[in-house]
């Protein structure tokens, strides 16, 4: 009989452990989801309901706030600007980041480890610190208030991630596949396009989307460096400060949703990148 007691105690510990584990999961999910849910409700509510108390937990599907935004002057231009800048950022960061990732994974060179740390360090400079000198420089070179100029700034923000993600992608492709292609008549370049590229295309797409999201969400540089050609976040920041509450909610919602959708689509690759970055 004595042998049974520790078993029961053990089962109890395990049970409470499992409860704690589940509670933690519920808490963390709520931490992220509840604010987004409120954002959703308030976006889809009429201005009166937004300001009323107590709150309803069921959206009433009032499209008033969203329709207002759709017709808001400059809104569509800002949206278009955002898309253009984000696409430029995407193309530039992959064009520069992917070759760097390939080099990091395939070649040994002096200072390789240092280079990897430096890539991460570029994220250590706060953007406000860089924004003023950049603004001055951009005005001198005529890049100020242009979409290309902003895309360049966003590219510098996105490149570290592009490099690290593609580095981990390339490292996942055995070098023997490339070597086999070389012996079968490929040059270094055709081996890349015919063997490596098809294998990492989904990952490249993911890292491109991530660059897109970084640009999409970036507001500080956009607000400092552009005046006429504002991107959506900068435009909303400027307009929403003085707007009523229900419009603030709707604006926030418009910003959050695309980013959420994109990040969800590429989550697998972000984990891969963090796995590498933590090594």
């Amino acid at each position: 009989m004595t042998a049974v007691t520790p078993d029961v105690a053990h089962a109890d510990v395990r049970k409470s452990g499992r409860f704690l584990f589940r509670a933690a999961i519920v808490f963390l999910c709520a931490w992220v989801l509840v604010p987004i849910y409120f954002l959703l409700i308030n976006t889809l509510s009429s201005p009166e309901t937004v300001n009323a108390f107590p709150k309803s937990f069921i959206p009433e599907f009032d499209m008033g706030s969203l329709t207002f935004f759709a017709n808001f002057a400059g809104m569509l231009t800002a949206l278009k600007n955002s898309v253009i800048v984000a696409c430029l950022t995407m193309v530039l960061s992959i064009a520069f980041g992917a070759p760097a990732g390939y080099a990091l994974s395939r070649f040994d060179f002096r200072g390789k480890e240092l280079f990897r740390v430096l890539i991460l360090l570029t994220r250590a400079f706060p953007l406000p610190l860089l924004a003023l000198p950049l603004a001055v420089l951009f005005i001198r070179t005529g890049l100020d208030d242009t979409l290309l100029g902003l895309a360049l700034v966003h590219t510098t923000l996105a490149i570290p991630f592009a490099v690290l993600i593609t580095f981990s992608l390339f490292s996942g492709i055995p070098i023997e596949l490339e070597e086999a292609a070389w012996t079968l008549g490929c040059t270094r370049f055709t081996a890349f396009t015919k063997v490596v590229l098809p294998l990492i295309a989904p990952g490249i797409a993911a890292s491109a989307i991530f660059a897109f999201v970084i640009s999409w969400n970036e507001v500080f540089a956009a607000a400092v460096l552009t005046i006429q050609n504002r991107t959506l976040p900068a435009f909303l920041l400027q307009s929403l400060g003085t707007s009523p509450l229900h419009l603030k909610f709707a604006g926030g919602f418009i910003l959050v949703v695309p980013a959420l959708v994109f990040i969800f689509a590429v989550r697998k690759y972000l984990f891969a990148m963090w796995g590498i970055a933590n090594r």
């Binding site: 055995p174 023997e176 596949l177 070597e179 490929c186």
Partner: peptide, 14 residues
């Protein structure tokens, strides 16, 4: 490699 008239079989097949 492609100009040498060789073919190679790798340990992990590739």
């Amino acid at each position: 490699p492609r100009d040498r008239g060789i073919a190679m079989v790798f340990q992990n097949y590739a």
